[in-house]
Simulated assay, not measured.
Amino acid sequence: MVLISSPEFPQQAEQRAMSESSIAQKWQRAVDEAFSVRYNVPLRSIPDRLDFTAQAYYRGIAGVLDEWIAPLFSVRNSLAHGQWVVAFNETREAVNNDRTKKLKDLSLWRLRLLKNMLGHLERLIFDLVVTRYAFERDFDAHWSGLDAARRRIENGNSADWEQLLRRRYHRGRWHHETNITRKRT
C-alpha cells in the first residue's frame, strides 16, 4: 500500500490496483502497472511487449507472487478467520485440504524465511516503482537473497535452526546464572 500510494505511482494506476478483489491481485496489478510505467509499454501489452530482459524480470517477480506470495496471503486469511487447524473454502461450506496442509506446514522457521523472502520482493518492487536506476542495478542482489530464502524453505530442514535456538537459550541461561552468582559474592 505504501508503494502504490507514493507520488511516483500514477494515481489512476493506484485506483486500478486498489479495485482488485484480493491482496494477491492487488500486488500483481501493482507490478503490471509499474512495469508499464517504467518501460513505457501499454498496460494491456504487459509482459509481451517488454524487451527480453524486462520480461525476465517481470516473469521472475510474477512467478514469486503466484507460487509463494498468493498462497501465503491465503494461509494468512485462514488464520485471521480463526481457522488454525482446519481451513475452509471461501464460502466456509467445505474443508480446503490444500490450505489445511499448508497450515500444518507452518512453523516459526518457515514464517521467518517467508518474511525474509517478502522483504527482498518488497525491495525489488520498491526499486521498480520508485527509483530510476536501482531496479536494474540491484535486481540480481535482491533476487539472489530472495532465491536463497526460497531454497531454504524448499529444502525444509528446520531442525538445525531449532537446535541453534535451544543452544542459544541454554547458553543465555548459563550466562544469566553466572552473572547472578558473581553479583551475590
Rank of each mutant, 00 (worst) to 15 (best):
L65Y: 08
P47M: 11
S78E: 01
A70S: 13
G63T: 15
R29Y: 00
W27F: 09
V75R: 13
A80N: 12
D127C: 08
I69K: 01
S144F: 10
R44M: 08
T131C: 09
A134K: 10
L106S: 05
A148M: 11
D160L: 08
L79Y: 01
L165N: 07
A87P: 01
K104A: 12
V64F: 08
L113K: 11
R150D: 01
H81Q: 07
P7S: 12
L164V: 10
R184H: 08
V130A: 06
W109A: 00
I153E: 03
T91M: 11
P71N: 12
S19R: 15
Y39W: 03
Q12N: 13
R44N: 09
A56G: 14
K183P: 01
E162Y: 12
Y57W: 05
P47E: 09
H175N: 08
G172W: 03
N97C: 10
I23L: 08
A13G: 14
K26W: 03
H175W: 07
Y57M: 03
L121G: 05
G63H: 13
A17G: 04
Y39L: 02
V95G: 06
R49L: 09
R182Q: 11
K104N: 02
L165K: 07
V86P: 04
Q28M: 13
N179I: 11
N89K: 14
L128E: 02
A54R: 02
G63A: 13
V37M: 03
V37R: 02
E136G: 02
E93D: 14
G82T: 14
Q55S: 09
E14N: 14
R49K: 14
G145H: 05
S22M: 13
I23E: 05
F135K: 01
V31F: 00
E136T: 04
R150A: 10
Q163W: 05
E162T: 13
E14D: 06
R16C: 04
S22H: 15
E20V: 15
P47S: 15
I4Q: 05
A159L: 14
D160M: 08
A30K: 00
L3I: 13
R59F: 06
R173H: 04
R166N: 10
R182T: 11
E14C: 10
E154K: 14
S6Y: 06
N40G: 07
F9D: 03
M1S: 13
Y58S: 11
F88W: 04
L3H: 05
P7H: 09
L118R: 04
W109C: 03
Q15W: 05
S21L: 13
Q11T: 10
L128A: 09
L72H: 06
I61P: 00
P42S: 11
E14R: 15
V129I: 14
N96I: 00
V75T: 12
N157M: 15
I4S: 04
Q163Y: 07
T131E: 07
Y169A: 08
D105W: 00
A134I: 06
N89R: 14
V2H: 08
R16H: 05
S19K: 15
L50G: 04
A141F: 07
F9W: 05
D160R: 14
L124S: 03
L111Y: 02
M1Q: 11
R59P: 01
K115R: 13
R168C: 01
Q83Y: 00
V37T: 06
E33S: 02
D66Y: 05
K26M: 14
D127L: 04
V37Q: 05
Q12V: 15
A141I: 15
K102H: 06
Y133T: 12
N179F: 01
